[in-house]
Amino acid sequence: MKKIIAAAALALAGLTLAAPTHAVAPDTAQAAHARAASAQSIATGLFLISNLADDTPGSALSIGPVPPVYPPLDVPVRYLSGPLTNHWLVQRGDDGLYTISAGRGGPADYRLVERDGAVFASATQEPSRWMIQGTEDGGLTLGTPDGRLATLHADDVPQVTLDAPDGSPAQAWRLMQLSGD
């Protein structure tokens, strides 16, 4: 009798392990809602912006060296590490779109703008409006209202271009809020 009970228990355990995977996978609407909620939770503040495709510790979006000329030149954003990274002020507008600037919102701050299919930093142009949306892997996309996404090409110039969505990790970003800011 004990052998029969043990065999039945093992059979039930096997059925539990073989449960269909669709029973635990979130449906598309729930996943979309979770992605939207993660993007909506971004409050105005200072952030480091890093890319999920690059696992180099301390790497983040930066402006890089800017020639000391007046008026300041627009420069392509760079992806650098350590003390060369920038703190970015991310501000949500009433329309749900964001502006991103290096600094604390002053008139001389460099702001992210779209230019020639790439992401540039400009001290003279009005900031572009950016869409920030969650991804399924917990990252965020930074994109234009027309649907192009900021994509990291670490070995190219410019390093951050605006491309059609392809689901690659190079299009997924992480905003790490700086404490006390």
Rank of each mutant, 00 (worst) to 15 (best):
M1D: 10
M1G: 12
A7V: 02
A7G: 01
A8R: 08
A8K: 08
A9D: 06
L10A: 13
L12R: 09
L12K: 03
G14P: 02
T16Q: 14
T16C: 15
T16A: 15
T21C: 12
H22L: 15
A23G: 14
A29P: 04
A31N: 12
A32G: 04
A34L: 03
A37M: 00
A37E: 07
S38W: 06
S41H: 01
I42E: 06
L46I: 05
L46C: 04
F47S: 00
F47M: 05
L48M: 01
L48V: 13
I49Y: 00
N51K: 07
L52Y: 02
D54M: 02
D54G: 07
D55R: 13
T56A: 02
T56Y: 01
P57F: 01
G58Y: 06
G58I: 05
L61R: 11
S62E: 01
G64L: 11
P68Q: 04
Y70A: 10
Y70W: 05
L73W: 00
D74W: 06
D74V: 08
D74I: 08
P76V: 12
P76C: 11
V77H: 04
R78N: 12
L80T: 14
S81R: 15
P83F: 14
L84T: 06
N86G: 13
W88D: 11
L89M: 08
V90F: 00
Q91L: 05
R92Q: 15
G93P: 01
D94E: 10
D94Q: 13
Y98I: 08
I100N: 06
A102E: 13
G103C: 07
P107I: 09
R111W: 09
L112W: 12
L112I: 06
V113G: 00
D116E: 15
G117D: 10
G117Y: 09
V119N: 07
F120S: 03
S122H: 09
Q125E: 13
E126S: 13
E126Q: 15
P127D: 05
I132C: 10
I132A: 11
T135W: 10
E136M: 00
G138K: 06
T141F: 05
T141N: 03
L142K: 01
L142C: 00
G143F: 01
T144H: 01
D146K: 07
A150F: 00
A150V: 02
T151P: 00
L152E: 00
H153I: 11
H153W: 05
H153Q: 14
A154S: 13
A154V: 14
D155E: 12
D155V: 11
D156M: 14
D156I: 03
V157A: 08
P158E: 05
Q159A: 11
L162I: 04
D163Y: 02
P165H: 13
D166R: 13
D166Y: 08
D166N: 15
G167Y: 06
G167L: 13
G167P: 07
G167W: 10
P169W: 06
A170M: 08
Q171G: 09
Q171S: 12
R174S: 04
R174Y: 05
R174Q: 12
L175H: 02
G180E: 10
D181Q: 11
